[in-house]
Structures are given as structure tokens and as C-alpha cells.
Design a protein around this nucleic acid. Sequence first.
DNA 1: ATATACTCTACTAAGTAGATAGACTAAATA
DNA 2: TATTTAGTCTATCTACTTAGTAGAGTATAT
Lengths: 141, 141
Amino acid sequence: MLSRKTKYAVKALLALAQRDDPEPMRISDLAVQEQIPQKFLESILLTLRNQGILQSRKGKGGGYLLGRDPKTIFLGQVVRMFDGPLAPVPCASQTAYVRCADCKDEAVCGVRLAMKDVRDATARILDHTSLASLVRRIERV
Amino acid sequence: MLSRKTKYAVKALLALAQRDDPEPMRISDLAVQEQIPQKFLESILLTLRNQGILQSRKGKGGGYLLGRDPKTIFLGQVVRMFDGPLAPVPCASQTAYVRCADCKDEAVCGVRLAMKDVRDATARILDHTSLASLVRRIERV
DNA sequence: ATATACTCTACTAAGTAGATAGACTAAATA
DNA sequence: TATTTAGTCTATCTACTTAGTAGAGTATAT
């Protein structure tokens, strides 16, 4: 299940990616437009900024804008940032592998085998879906 | 993230599918073998039985056994039973669709578009992975 | 009859998600 | 340079969920 945090993060990023305005967008405007509790959104945007995905400008006329080309911002990074590894079980994760304490022999663990398939399929999608490509899909409608 | 409940359920089912013994297997033996807290396992097995995936026999010599051919038991059913819909967001679910309260126009929601891809890929895997096929993969090692 | 083993209800501790409050800091502009 | 605007940071809170426990009850094979 996707956390609200991740969902809000993606919605905010998409909103920023869809603007042509080179000027930053205010948190409060973003919060109203995307129907996200403002204080909650603040902490999300801050995380995105600290990870280099967003840039911020302080003071009057300030706000947030994308930190880099939307073609290079992938959902996989955003999801992992807030919800952790994509794999349904830690022992199937590529980026954050952790062994199961109770597992005698990983090679013959059916749960791991199946979940590795799921994580690979998920990563194949999310690590290849950029903000730019999503915006393109949306705007085709 | 897969809950422990689902993980235990799959492990228990695999253990039962891997036995040739036509006699039922005791909860206590299953719990020890798979390193699952017995009382916790009891409730899991009960759910699986109520859903028709397992059969139980009471009294001396009793225990649990598969309720149908392992070729017809798919992980998708088990995962949904304990963890709910496969889709990361309710509005992307096929089996348990729920509209987002805050969504103005679903057709142009980027989150939903991407998550629908993820849910489809996950379902394609889990609804086609049977206990029998998993056991085959395990035993090839 | 009785031991065995599944069934059911209730409860609880610990952790996480989602959100809120408020003080603080930086920067633009009058 | 004073003031306003707007982002930054720390702390806290409540409700819910997960994982697990306890114990009484019920069915059945021998």
C-alpha cells in the first residue's frame, strides 16, 4: 500500500512539472490546489528538497520548483524515499537487502522467489516512469 | 510490504504442498517446522480453511491438509485474503476498486496511471503463480 | 471416557501513519 | 534597515494496525 506521504509527494511533483512558469510555486498554493494538508506537505517538500529533487526559494516571491529535468526524476526514487524498498519482503530487495532471521535456506524459499518476481516487475515500471513521461501520458487524454 | 501473516500463510501452504503424506499435519508440527508462533498460526490456518484452501480434521490424528489441488491455489488469492487488494492505491484496484475522495478527475491522475501499471504487473505474477509451480521451482534447486 | 487437537473470543503491547503546533530563520522589498 | 513573507526545523499527539497471547470451548478418534 502506498502511503499518503508518497501519494502527496508524487501529486505535488506532477503539479510542479505541469507548470510552465519558471517562478517558484508557494506551498500554500500547492496545498490548496492538490488538496493536501499544508503542514504535512511542508515536511514532504522539505524531504524532496534535501534529496535534490526540488529547489526552494525563501522570502517574498519564494516557493518550490523542480530541482532537475523532469525526464530524470523517476517514481522509483520518490517511492523508495518515503515508503522504503519496493520489494514486499526485505530478502527480495535489490537496493536494501536484509536476510530473514528465520530463513534456513534462502535458495529454496518460495516466498522469496515469488516476491523477487514482484519486486523486479515493480522496479521495472517505477524506475522507468519519469515525471516527464507521466505528464505526457496525462496530457494525451 | 507483505505482512507476516501472509508470509506465514504461504510458508505453511508450501510446507503442506511439499508433503506426499495423505494424512493431515498437526498445527504444532507445522509451527515448529516453519518457525511460526503456534497460536498465531492457528488463526491463519483457520482463515485459510474458511476460504476453502485448507481442510481440517479434528481429534487424534487430526490436523490440516490442502483443500484442493495445489495447481489451483494461487498466491494472489492468499495475499489478497490477508493483505487486501494488490493495488498500491484503492483507485487502481481491479478486485476492490474505491474512488479517491480527493480526486477531481481520475482519468488524468498520474498516481493512478502509474499504480495501475504496478497492480497489473503484480497481479500477472501472483495470479499465475500456483503452489504447485512454486514447489516445482523450489525442487529444481 | 478421555486425550487430542482444532475453534473461537477477547485482549494487549508496540509501532507506524497522518497530521498539527509553534518557534525559528532567511530573503525580498519598501 | 524594518517589515513582511515564506520556507525550515523540532516536538508532539491521536488513531489505527500489526503481531502476538491467553484461555475457554468443541469435536472426534480410539
